[in-house]
Amino acid sequence: MLIIELIKNLFRRPETVKYPYETEGLNFPERLRALHIIDQESCIGCRKCARACPAYVIEMVPLTEDELEARTEKIKKKKVKPVIDLTACIFCGVCEDVCPTDCLNLTNHIVLPSGDKEELEVGD
């Protein structure tokens, strides 16, 4: 039985995909919870995501002078913005669930390695 399997394997395509050199055959489901994107223009700075985060990785950072000036009518009361530290994030997606304006989303983009810690902060 096993010998038949072994002979079949000789002519089979390898199951391993040589990621990241090849991406063919990889499938990233739509629901996959990976890199966050934050649309700061529609974020109202309500802090709900920071309060709900189970890993305490969302920090509400005060807006800079330029950012304060650039606020649109929709977000004129916004004083803080969320910044996510991906190094400690557990990718549970709770922040996405609680966001009232739907400005914080988890994408299925899984390529996150970086040599620079600042690159792993989303929202800045």
């Binding site: 489901p29 629901r31 996959l32 919870r33 990718f91 997606g93």
Partner: peptide, 15 residues
């Protein structure tokens, strides 16, 4: 594992 990933959004720690 693929089925779990598609259904829940993660291979382990499904949330």
């Amino acid at each position: 594992m693929d089925a779990l990933e598609t259904l829940t959004g993660n291979r382990v720690n499904y949330g």
